[in-house]
Design a protein around this nucleic acid. Structure first.
Length: 463
DNA sequence: GGAACTCGCCAC
DNA sequence: AAACGTGGCGAGTTCC
């Protein structure tokens, strides 16, 4: 049967969504203002110490000598100084063709002062982008981040003033500093509920690839493990071995996800070998790269017949071909079909009732419906839970959302009651409302102790 | 003196 | 043939 999205439904989803988000915005989230100020002062002291240290160096005196208004935070000056004055060869260029000064480029320059600049950037980012914004935006000890539904081409959401959707998480130190300032109401606790792998699952509703369906539904299967096995040619792959687990992560982050976003083997090979494998872009010698259960990555790859970077890149080219034309060939056919359809009609329709038009590249065409509809699952659940909480008079409130997760300011006394409802709405009710969802849905929960900040969230095993 | 731009970097 | 999707925001620079 042909897909017949109901665009009135899409229209209503945004209307109801805007109202539910407005209520969360009004509710707001508590900020530990004293903590913010303390951390800001602490960061400022650290920044001043490092600036002083930098300014006492020969490196800086040279910089001062050649620049009119020397400013260590000017990337324009930094690029001129490193790449023109000191004649260092830039390892990478910006989109406009100038020598890049991002972390990846600078970390390859072996000058201690450059390391100080990188450290300073990180500290300033935390202070000026996050803590300052929280302090600036807070009203009576609460911030009220906005959640927008009208700004994103794919009909996802965005957030601003302050942006609640990009608060540090992966860097442990940055996470603790920034998320440490976000609190529940007094006596309450923060509860975060995430859809697991929602984009992959909603992707399945579009392309209906049977191999992908098995990966989604069979808990024994492991796509990232299978790809690690193939990419690094590991016969007896076992993700309980730490070195194998590391390479599985490499496969996931430098091959599988980028491939789904439309990247290609040249970039993937570089990420896998250099960034994750710590191998050089040349012929490999014994004892190079990250450790393996026996020896090092280069030892292993040489043994299985990949003796240099160029041979590895060629291998990844074959893995990519296999990935799309054998493993996920139905997915590949869908991509081609959608691209042709867009070229013919000038727009695409999504399963949640939206028409996306305008000039798009192939990767945008393929990503838009999946990204948008995956978010709409979250939006639908957000609306339902807001309605139920209102009708039943919950003290537990919805206070924010990050594309595939909802943040609750939860009443400890209500947890036993609301948690099963949250799970039911997000995984069962939604499938009754939208029968085009042909895969199972799952949620994961994290929770903080009462009165504890967001930085302390722990896995919540409620069942 | 503000708008618009580039660059870098945080999230999903 | 070409080659990573979606945002917000701060700082510096350039344009008008």
């Amino acid at each position: 049967m042909a897909i017949k999205p109901n665009r009135l439904e899409g229209y209503e989803l945004l209307h109801k969504g805007a109202l539910a988000f407005a209520k969360a915005e009004a509710q707001g989230m508590r900020i530990d203002s004293e903590y913010c100020e303390r951390k800001k002062k602490h960061l400022t002291r650290k920044i001043e110490r490092l600036e002083k240290k930098l300014k006492e160096t020969k490196f800086y005196r040279h910089w001062q000598h050649v620049m009119k208004n020397p400013n260590i935070y000017s990337n324009w000056q930094l690029a001129r100084f490193l790449y023109e004055v000191k004649k260092i060869k830039p390892v990478k260029l910006t989109p406009s063709g100038k020598g890049a000064t991002d972390e990846e480029a600078l970390s390859q320059i072996d000058i201690p002062e450059v390391k100080i600049i990188l450290k300073l950037r990180k500290l300033k980012k935390l202070r000026d982008t996050y803590l300052d914004a929280f302090a600036r935006e807070q009203v009576d000890g609460k911030i009220h981040p906005f959640f927008n539904l009208h700004t994103v081409r794919t009909y996802r959401s965005s957030s601003d003033r302050p942006n609640f959707q990009n608060i540090p998480k992966r860097d442990e130190e940055a996470m603790r500093i920034c998320r440490g300032s976000i609190l529940p109401r007094k006596g309450f606790q923060l509860l975060e509920v995430d859809y697991s792998g929602i984009e992959v699952r909603i992707g399945e509703c579009y392309h209906k690839d049977p191999v992908m369906k098995r990966y989604i539904e069979n808990p024994e299967s492991d796509m990232h493990g299978d790809m690690a096995k193939q990419i690094f040619k590991i016969e007896n792959f076992d993700k309980s071995i730490p070195e194998h687990k590391y390479l599985r992560n490499a496969a996931k982050n430098s091959f599988v996800f980028p491939q789904f976003y439309g990247d290609y083997y040249v970039n993937c090979a570089e990420g896998l070998a250099c960034k994750w494998g710590h191998l050089p872009k040349s012929k490999w010698k014994k004892g190079q790269g990250v450790p393996m259960p026996e020896g090092f990555l280069s030892d292993h790859l040489i043994k299985v017949g990949i003796k240099s970077y160029s041979e590895f890149e060629e291998h990844i080219k074959e893995v990519e071909y296999d990935f799309w034309y054998r493993r996920f060939k139905v997915y590949q056919k869908w991509k081609d079909k959608l691209w042709k359809e867009y070229q013919r009609k000038g727009y695409i329709d999504t399963l949640t009732g939206f028409r996306i038009g305008g000039l798009m590249r192939k990767n945008e065409v393929i990503n838009s419906p999946i990204q948008g509809s995956a978010f709409h699952c979250l939006l639908w659940s957000f609306i339902q839970l807001d309605e139920i909480s209102e009708k039943e008079g919950w003290n537990t409130k919805l206070i924010g959302q990050i594309h595939d997760s909802i943040l609750f300011d939860a009443d400890p006394k209500e947890l036993n009651y609301v948690v099963p409802i949250i799970e039911r709405v997000m995984t069962e009710d939604i499938r009754k409302a939208w029968d085009w969802i042909i895969v199972s849905l799952e949620v994961e929960m994290d929770i903080c102790e009462p009165d504890r900040p967001w930085s302390e969230k722990k896995e919540f095993l409620w069942k």
